[in-house]
Design a binder for these strands. Structure first.
Lengths: 107, 107
DNA sequence: ATTATATATTGCAATATTACGATGATAAAC
DNA sequence: GTTTATCATCGTAATATTGCAATATATAAT
């Protein structure tokens, strides 16, 4: 099918999976790492840096924005994409909670 | 296309994205949470617990095994799937390193 | 031996994702 | 106002993922 049966899971499970899913592409990992290494960021830099077409980068940025990880401000004709640090730490906490709460003690 | 251009990214970026990707499905999140809440686990329990067909659960288990997060031991005619705690903590560390190293200071 | 139970694998249909060229939209530069 | 630069969106092709029924495999129970 290709369709995920979201309705049989809790909202938390769906949200958590969504965070993981958005981070689950090397281009998006690379984008975040590059933005993190700079003080600001412009989409066009990424096109050269990453090596994907402009339209593709733009799409990946959109997905990162969709979970609030990036915020973009218009600076004249350029866009300044930055990591939303508050959200970044919030998501990191969520993921760590998942890891810490899901400890097993069998085998 | 649907094909990821893995060759333009580093191995670390691809690995990291792969971890995230495998965790990026609510069924797999739910499976891990359920296994974590028990002391051992049987696939058939999961079918009732999660509400997906047996074949589908089996497939998700396979993906979780593919990154080493689960280990399965045969117990008679049953399978005992458990979380591989060492690997679990290793992956948690990798993800936290990514989050901590990718801090931005702009905007 | 046969049957029941538990899980894996295969094959397939439906949908999602990835990537890109083409095209829009917007603002600076001229 | 025309051009240039930067980014978003649309449309589309190729591939991946999800989910399930059917089937295969393997062991336990009878």
């Amino acid at each position: 099918m290709g369709i995920t049966k979201s309705d049989i899971f809790t909202e938390k499970q769906n949200d958590l999976a969504q965070f993981f899913k958005v981070l689950g592409h090397p281009a998006r990992v690379a984008i975040l790492q590059y933005i993190g290494s700079q003080n600001s960021c412009i989409c066009n830099d990424l096109v050269e840096e990453i090596g994907l077409a402009q339209a593709t980068i733009s799409q990946h940025l959109k997905e990162l924005k969709s979970i609030g990880l990036l915020k973009g401000e218009i600076e004249g004709k350029k866009m300044c994409y930055c990591i939303n640090v508050e959200r970044w730490e919030e998501i990191q906490q969520h993921l760590n909670q998942f890891f810490n709460n899901t400890k097993s003690n069998c085998c």
